[in-house]
Simulated assay, not measured.
Amino acid sequence: MILELLIATVMVLATVALHGVGLLVIARVLHERDLRRAGYRISPFSLEGAVIASGVALALLTLHGVEIWLYAFLFVTLDAIATLPEAVYFSTISYATIGYSDAPILERWRLLGAIEGVNGTLLMGWSVAFFVTVMARVLPHRRASRRPARRDRADAP
């Protein structure tokens, strides 16, 4: 069990680091776009808004896919699961916390599969928070779209 927990800890650290770097890369790409566009907000109903939303969603899915495959390769390397297709399937349902069954994994490594589920839940939550933040930057402010912003009395000339 100690070896299983040690391997799980290394995988959690590796996937969290990978996820952090991936989000940083996405954020930098978006920041560069903001600099080129002078930081104006775009309509989510525009082609540009749709491209940004779709691009970020695909980048996040790719990031999660890489993390799922890392776990799958680990399961095959440890001989915890017999074949790569079974390992990818098991890893996907564990990571997404669907958890249909742990039957294909050897009993000795089941805790590793459970920890992958906790790890996947946290990384997906992080991605959702990131995506919401990105979309909040894209969407126009409600006040700004209806009427000019009010000036506080302290700001008055």
Rank of each mutant, 00 (worst) to 15 (best):
L139I: 13
F75K: 02
L139T: 10
I81N: 01
F130D: 07
A87P: 05
A149W: 12
D102R: 07
A96F: 09
R150G: 07
A144P: 00
G120L: 03
G113Y: 05
A103F: 12
E116H: 07
A129G: 12
R150E: 12
S101Y: 06
I93V: 15
D102S: 13
R110M: 10
A136T: 12
F90D: 00
V134S: 06
S94K: 03
E107N: 11
I98E: 05
G113D: 11
L70S: 06
L74I: 02
D79P: 03
F73C: 04
W69C: 12
R150Q: 10
G99D: 12
P104A: 09
P85T: 01
G125M: 14
R143D: 15
V134C: 07
P140L: 09
Y89D: 03
I68P: 01
S101Q: 04
E116F: 00
S101F: 02
S127V: 05
G113R: 09
L122G: 10
A149T: 11
A72P: 04
P104Q: 08
G99E: 06
Y100A: 12
M124V: 08
S91G: 15
G99Q: 08
P148N: 09
R146G: 02
T97H: 04
L123Q: 13
A80C: 01
W69F: 15
N119I: 01
L112W: 03
I98P: 00
V88D: 01
G125S: 10
V118G: 09
V132K: 09
A80F: 01
R137Y: 07
R143F: 10
E116Y: 00
T83W: 05
R108A: 15
D79V: 00
W126V: 10
I98S: 05
R142P: 06
G125V: 08
E67P: 00
P104L: 09
A87W: 00
L112S: 07
E67D: 10
V132W: 07
T121A: 12
E67R: 06
I68V: 15
G125D: 06
V76Y: 03
H141M: 08
D79L: 00
T92G: 09
V138C: 06
A80D: 03
P140H: 12
L84P: 04
F73H: 11
T97M: 08
L78F: 03
D102Y: 12
M135Y: 11
V118K: 01
F90S: 12
A72R: 00
L78N: 03
R108F: 11
L122A: 14
Y100E: 08
G117Y: 01
A96C: 10
T77D: 07
L106K: 13
A72N: 00
L111Q: 03
G99C: 08
L122I: 14
Y89C: 00
G99S: 13
T92V: 07
Y71T: 02
W126C: 10
A114G: 00
L106R: 13
R150W: 13
F75E: 01
N119A: 08
S101I: 03
E67A: 11
P85Y: 05
S127Y: 05
I98M: 10
G113H: 07
R142N: 09
T121W: 10
P148Q: 11
F131Y: 15
